[in-house]
Design a protein around this nucleic acid. Structure first.
Lengths: 201, 201, 201, 201
DNA sequence: GATGAATGAGTCTTCATTCAT
DNA sequence: AATGAATGAAGACTCATTCAT
C-alpha cells in the first residue's frame, strides 16, 4: 500500500480535531468519550489512535490549535500602526473572539474555559498556555508603552501593570460572556472608555 | 446511633465538602472519584451518600458554597461608604480572593475555573452561577452610578457598561492569576489607575 | 422498661408483614429494599430487625403467612358436604383467590408468582411450599375419590391424576389471571364443565 | 479485529444467552449478577455489553427467546390434523415442555416462573408475554371449536372458556412440576381424560 | 428496648486502549 | 494501513445489616 500523502494526513488530523472540538464543547472534556469523537470524525478507533496516541494528547492538540488560531487572529490587531486606543483595541479583540465563535463549529470561549480548567491538573497544558499568554501579555505591554508615549496613558504608568489589566479585561470578557452571555464587545469598550475619559478637576 | 444533632450533621457536611474541595482542586471535578472524596473525608461511601445523593449534587454544593463564601467576603467591600475609587475597589476584591485562597485549604480561583467549565454542561450549575454573578454585577452598576455622581467617571458614562468592564477585570484576574500566577492585586489596581488618571490635553 | 406485651408484638409483626406485602407486590421481592419496608411500616430499622432477623426470613414469613391465609380460606370449601362437583369447586376456589386479592391491600396472585420464582433458589421456601401444596393436593385426591364414588367421574379414574389435573387448573388460573388478567372464575368453571358434560354416543 | 460476520455475531449472542439462562435458573434473575453471566459466557464485561446494552435487556431477550423456542415446539402440535383429543394434546404439550427442559442446558419451567415473576414489575416483559399467551390461547380456542364440531365437546360449549381452561391446565402444569416435581405428562392427561369420559346416567 | 447513622462489599456499567485479522 | 471487537480496570452508587447511644 502506498503511504498516505502528507496532505491527506494533515486533512485527517484536522478532521479529527474538529470532531473533537465539537464534542468537547458539547459535553466537556471528560464527559466526551473517545468513541464520541471517533464517531463524530467518521473514522475507526484505530485510525484516530494512529493520529493521536491518547486522549490527553488529543486534548492538548485541540487546545493548542485553538490557541494558535486565536493568536493568528489577534496578532494583526496588535501589529496595526497607528495603534488603536485601549478601548478600541479591546473592542476589536472581543469582536474577533465572538466572531470566531459564531463562524466555526465551535465556541472559542467554551474551549477556553474547558482548557483553563483542565490546565489545573495537566502540567503540559499549563505550560502550553503560559507559552501563549505570556508572550501575548508582552505584546500588550509594548502596546501600553506606545499608549504612554502617545500620552493616552500617563507618563508614570507602569506598562507591565497596564498589560496585566488589559489581559484581565480580555480573559474576563471570555468568562463573562460564556457564563452570562450578554456582553457585547462594544459594551466592554464603552465601559473602558468611560475610565479613560479625563475628568475636569 | 440515635438521631444525630443538627450541629453534627452540619459539621459532617462541611467535613465532606472540605474533602471534596481538596480533591477537586487537586485532580479536577471529573478526575476526582467519589472514592477519593470518601477517603479524604475519612468516612464510608454510605455516609457520604447520605449527605449528598450524587456526585453531581456534591459538585453543585461545593461550588454553591464557595460562591456563597465569596459573596460574604466581597459584600462588605461594596457596601462601604464612602465608596473607594474603582482601582482601590478592584485591589481589595482581588486581595480578598487571594487571601481566601491562601488561608483555607482550597484555592478559590481553581474552584472558580472548575466551576465555570462544569457550568458549560450543567444547567443547574449555570443557573446557580447566573444567580450569583448577575446580582454582583448589579451592585457594581450601583457603584458605577456612585462614581459618576462623584465625578470619578464622566457624566455620560453608561453605568451598565462600566459594571461589565469591572466584572471582566475581576473575573479576568481570577483566570490570569490561576494560569500565570504572577498578578498581584496591586498590579491590577495600578494598571486600572493608569487608565483613570486624567491626561493633560 | 416493661416488656412489650405479646399482643403488641403480634400486632407489630403483622404491621411489618403487611408493609412487606405491599412493597413486594409493587416492586418484586428483590427490588424491594429493607428500607422500603421499614419506611412503609413506619418503624426503625432496628425495630424491624428485632422481629425478622433478615430479609430472607421476612420473605419466608410473608409467603408462609399468605399461604396460611389461603389455606384458611380454601379449607372450608373442600370440607363441605355434599361436595360440589369439580367445576363448581374450581369456581369457588378461583373466586376466593380473586376476592382475597381485591379486599386486602395485596394481590394474592402476585405474591404467589413472586413466591414460586423465589422458591427456585431458596430451599426453605421450596420446602414450605411443598408442605402446603402436597397436603392440598391430597385433599383434592380425597375429593376425586368422592366424585368417583358419586359417579361424577368414571369408576376407573385415577384419583391422584385427577388431583394433579385439578391443582394444575387452579395454579394455572393464578398465572393466567395475573398475566392476562381476563379470566373470570366462572369462565374457568364453564370451561371445565364443558369437559365433564357427557356426549351422546 | 475486522468486522465480525453475522453468523459469529449470532453465535456470540446465543452463547451469552445460554450463559444467562444457566445462571438465571440457578440463582434467579436478580440474584444473578452480570459478572456471573460474564464469567459463565467466558467473555469480558465489555463484550457482553456490546451485545446486550443492559441487564434488563438481557433478561428480556432471555425470556423472549425462550418463549419463541417454546412456540416453535408447540405450534406443530396444534396444527396437526386430525386434531388429537384434549387429553392427548395436553399430554404432548406437557411432554414437549418437559423434554425441552431435559435436553437443553436449561429448564423451561424455571425460566417461565422467573419470567412471570419479573413481568409483574416490568411493563415490556408483560407485553411480550401477552403477545405470546394471547395468540396461543386463540389457537386453543380454534382447537376447542374443532372438538365441539367433532362432538368431543358438547354443542353448547363456550370455546373461549374451554381455551382458558386448557391454558390454565398447561400453565398450572408448569408451576406444579417446577414446585412439586412429580407430575408426569401422562398423569395430567389421564386426569383430564377422567373428566372427559362420559358417565352412565 | 429503640433508634437510625454508619458500614463496605457488591452491583451495574463505561470507556481508553489494544491488536488479531 | 485500517478496522472494530474485545478487554478489564475503574467508576458511581446501593443496601442488608449492625451497634453506639
Amino acid at each position: 500500500m502506498p503511504k498516505i500523502s502528507d496532505e491527506r494526513r494533515a486533512a485527517r488530523r484536522t478532521q479529527i480535531l474538529e470532531a473533537a472540538w465539537t464534542c468537547f464543547q458539547r459535553r466537556g472534556l471528560h464527559a466526551t468519550s473517545m468513541d464520541d469523537i471517533i464517531r463524530a470524525a467518521g473514522l475507526s478507533a484505530g485510525a484516530v489512535y494512529s493520529y493521536f496516541p491518547s486522549k490527553e494528547e488529543l486534548i492538548l492538540a485541540a487546545v493548542t490549535t485553538s490557541l494558535g488560531n486565536l493568536r493568528a487572529l489577534i496578532a494583526p490587531l496588535l501589529a496595526e500602526r497607528p495603534l488603536p486606543p485601549p478601548d478600541e483595541l479591546v473592542r476589536r479583540i472581543a469582536e474577533v473572539i465572538t466572531a470566531y465563535t459564531v463562524h466555526e463549529a465551535y465556541d472559542l470561549r467554551r474551549i477556553a474555559l474547558l482548557g483553563w480548567s483542565e490546565a489545573q491538573r495537566n502540567e503540559r497544558l499549563r505550560e502550553t498556555m503560559r507559552g501563549f499568554y505570556l508572550p501575548f501579555r508582552a505584546v500588550l505591554e509594548e502596546a501600553a508603552a506606545q499608549w504612554r508615549d502617545e500620552r493616552v496613558l500617563p507618563e508614570q504608568a507602569a506598562t507591565d501593570d497596564v498589560a496585566k489589566l488589559m489581559l484581565s479585561v480580555i480573559l474576563g470578557f471570555v468568562v463573562q460572556s460564556a457564563i452570562l452571555g450578554d456582553v457585547a464587545p462594544s459594551a466592554l469598550a464603552d465601559g473602558l472608555r468611560a475610565m479613560l475619559t479625563p475628568q475636569p478637576a
